[in-house]
Amino acid sequence: MGQIILYVIRDLVRSRWTLAYTLFYLLVGFGVLLMGRDPARAMVTFLQIVLILTPLMGTLFGIMYYYATRDFQELLLAQPLPRTHVLLGQWVGIALSLGVSLLVGLGTPFVVSGFGVGYSLVAATLLGVGMLLGAIFAGLALSMGLLTDHRIQGFGMALILWLFLAVVYDGLVLALLMILRDYPVEKLALVLTFLNPIDLARILLIMQMDVSALLGYTGAVFREFLGASRGMVASAGALVLWLAIPAILIVWRVRRRDF
């Protein structure tokens, strides 16, 4: 599996999409920091960018890579390797390559500008969470690819999944909270965010920042659970656990399907 990961990275690192993605982060990173905003607000801007971009890019890279290397997969699968290693290896390769883009693209401005100082924990969490989100969505996209050989179908399914988790899900949460407005729903809100990796990542980041005060009483319920270092570890763990879902999907599909 290590060899496959290595070659996927070697391939992707030379791709101009990777280059463009990294450059975009560099541009945005330096742009936001050069605007000279208050670092707390700059952090909020980064948070929003990372939460939108990493899942989307994970999805796009995952599904594009799946179909672009569909035939190569066939050759890999014909080698004396377990089937799961091939797909899981590709996934890890994509995830790491995306992660490196984020790390270089945003990490460089952080370090160069000295922004990390005083915000190093939040900045590190942001990068870590961004890498996890990229990995989760790349994996989900790969599993969508594994469901169908029809490219358009696969692209559609991956994008719909992204759209659901990035936007629609929150819409449903919003609607649900409005409907249940007469009941105490903080705990429900807490549970609902755990079920969506983007929400989980968002709350995890907000809780590390000053802006967590804006969450008010609801935030206090969250803090009770998340704020203590154990809660923080638990929610970070939940995000890592989210990796298991694409992993299970991939293994389940890859064992059964024909190539």
Partner: peptide, 21 residues
């Protein structure tokens, strides 16, 4: 099983390797 493929070398009909390798 997969180990038996150690004894088989395979050339697919159409080979597509990652374009950047």
């Amino acid at each position: 099983k997969y180990a038996y493929r150690r004894h088989i070398a395979y050339m697919p009909q159409l080979s597509y390797f990652p374009a950047n390798l």
